[in-house]
């Protein structure tokens, strides 16, 4: 593992000098003090209560990650249905009548924008049905589902980098 000390006549190499650093060692008293202090600090660590957000985080991370993602996604869908649903319904029903909307010159562009936002074929088909004067409620329902799906997928995608970032700032931050 190590090159031996150069026994060649009077030679003294840099390796020989550096190896002398091994002689700088603390005495027995130092280690007794060290052990005592370390035990005290470790006990403090064990006793110290974790903050609530760390407790929540630890519980979340202890669950299987797939279950976690599925659970969070489902929760996001339910929450978004409750939050977004009621606010959008009166606006759509009580605003301009269907004929007005269809005759509006901006409508086609609106449809195109929404279709671009989510290129799902079903959504585009539903949007086209509105232009043809087909059931308005059907489009509304589809709209909510699209929105909810987008939100849930964004949320789960976000949660992964957040978790990774948290791990890096924690104790085992071992990036050299």
């Amino acid at each position: 593992m190590q090159k031996p000390i150069s026994h060649n006549s009077d030679e003294v190499s840099i390796d020989d000098l550096l190896r002398l650093k091994r002689s700088e060692k603390p005495n027995r008293q130092f280690w007794d003090q060290f052990d005592h202090e370390l035990h005290q600090r470790m006990l403090q660590t064990l006793v110290k209560k974790e903050s609530w957000y760390l407790q929540v985080w630890n519980r979340l991370t202890s669950i299987n990650s797939l279950t976690q993602i599925a659970g969070l996604t489902a929760a996001a869908v339910v929450v978004s249905l409750f939050l977004i649903g009621p606010s959008k319904e009166p606006t759509l029903v009580t605003s301009s009548p269907l004929e007005d909307t269809l005759m509006s010159p901006d409508f086609s562009s609106e449809v195109m924008v929404e279709a671009d936002y989510d290129t799902d074929a079903i959504f585009v088909r539903d949007a086209l049905k509105i232009e043809q004067g087909v059931d308005f409620d059907q489009d509304y329902t589809t709209d909510i589902i699209q929105l909810a799906q987008n939100q849930s997928s964004d949320y789960s995608a976000d949660s992964i980098p957040v978790r990774a970032a948290f791990g890096q700032t924690g104790i085992a931050s071992l990036v050299f």
């Binding site: 026994h7 003294v12 020989d16 002398l20 002689s23 700088e24 603390p26 005495n27």
Partner: peptide, 16 residues
Amino acid sequence: YETINEEVQTNVIIER
């Protein structure tokens, strides 16, 4: 600095 172990006094490098 840390104290140096007395053994170093007999080290061949120190002798040289």
